Simulated scan of single mutants.
Amino acid sequence: MSGTIHILGLILAGGLARRFGGDEVHAVDKARLILAGRPLLAHVRGRLAPQVSALALNANGDPDRYRDQGLPILADTVPGYSGPLAGVLAGLEYARTQGGHTHVLSVPADCPFLPQDLAARLAGAAAPGGVACATSGGQRHPVVALWPVDLADRLRQALVEEDVRKVGVFLAGQPLALVDFAVEAIDPFFNINTPDDLDAAAAFLSKGLAPAIQA
C-alpha cells in the first residue's frame, strides 16, 4: 500500500461468549477472564497497542464495566447482537468521526498471542480501498483484518439492508489480500472459546511457548 496510513486498533468484545455460559440476557465478559494472572484484554492490548495510533473497545451492555480501561467503549450501532461485523462497523464509524484514522485493525478480545508485526504486514499487503485479512495454518481469520475507514457506508448497507452477518460473506465482495503468519510453537491466532482453551493458553505461557507482553 502506498502513502501513509493511520490505524485505530479495535478490540472486539461485543459477543455473548455462549460457550462460557453467556446469552442475550447475561453476556459473559470473556475479555475479563484471567489468563496467567491478567485479564485476556490486557494480553491483547499489550500486543496491539504498540502497533497502532490509538485503541478502542467494542463492547455491548453497560459500558461502565470497562471504564477502568481508559479506552473509548463502542457499542454496536445496529441492533440485535449482529456479530463481529457490527463491531467492525462501530469501529469504522467511530474512526471516521475522530479524523486522521485511515484504517481500523480489528482483533478479537480472546486472541492473547497476536503477532507483533500484525499491523505492519497487513498494511503492507492491503490494496487501496481493500481489506487485508490474516491467515495461519491454512485457516482464514476474518475478524483479524485491516479495514479502510471509507468502507463504513458499504458495511452499514450490507448489515442493515442486506442482512449480511458473516464476515467472510461480506469480505467475498471486497478487494481482499490474505497475509499468512507462520505457526511455530503455537498458532498466533489461537483463540479462547472454552474453559479448556483458557487452560491450554495458560500452559503455553507457563512453558514459554508464547512470551507474555505487558500492556
Rank of each mutant, 00 (worst) to 15 (best):
A86F: 04
V88Y: 02
V88T: 05
L89G: 00
A90H: 02
A90Y: 01
G91W: 04
L92W: 01
A95D: 03
T97G: 15
Q98F: 10
G99C: 07
H101V: 10
H101T: 10
T102S: 08
H103N: 09
H103C: 06
V104K: 12
L105I: 06
S106G: 13
A109T: 14
D110T: 11
C111L: 15
P112A: 10
Q116C: 14
R121P: 02
L122V: 05
L122H: 02
L122G: 01
A123C: 11
G124A: 07
A125G: 14
A126R: 07
A126W: 04
V131P: 04
A132W: 03
A132H: 03
C133D: 15
A134D: 14
A134H: 11
A134S: 11
T135R: 13
S136R: 10
S136C: 11
S136N: 13
G137Y: 12
G137N: 11
R140N: 15
H141V: 08
H141S: 07
H141P: 06
V143I: 12
V144K: 02
A145D: 02
L146C: 01
L146A: 00
L146F: 00
P148V: 01
V149M: 01
V149H: 00
V149K: 00
D150S: 10
L151R: 10
A152Y: 01
R154C: 04
R154P: 03
L155F: 02
R156V: 00
Q157F: 09
Q157N: 08
L159E: 00
L159T: 00
V160M: 10
E161L: 15
E162C: 13
E162M: 14
E162A: 12
D163R: 05
R165D: 03
K166N: 15
V167A: 02
V167K: 01
G168W: 05
V169M: 14
F170L: 05
L171W: 08
A172V: 14
A172C: 12
A172G: 12
A172E: 13
A172P: 11
G173H: 14
G173L: 09
P175H: 04
P175M: 07
A177N: 06
A177Q: 07
L178G: 12
L178I: 10
L178V: 13
D180C: 10
D180Q: 15
F181N: 04
F181G: 03
A182F: 09
V183Y: 09
A185I: 14
D187M: 13
D187V: 12
F189P: 00
F189M: 04
F189S: 01
F190L: 14
F190S: 08
F190D: 13
N191S: 15
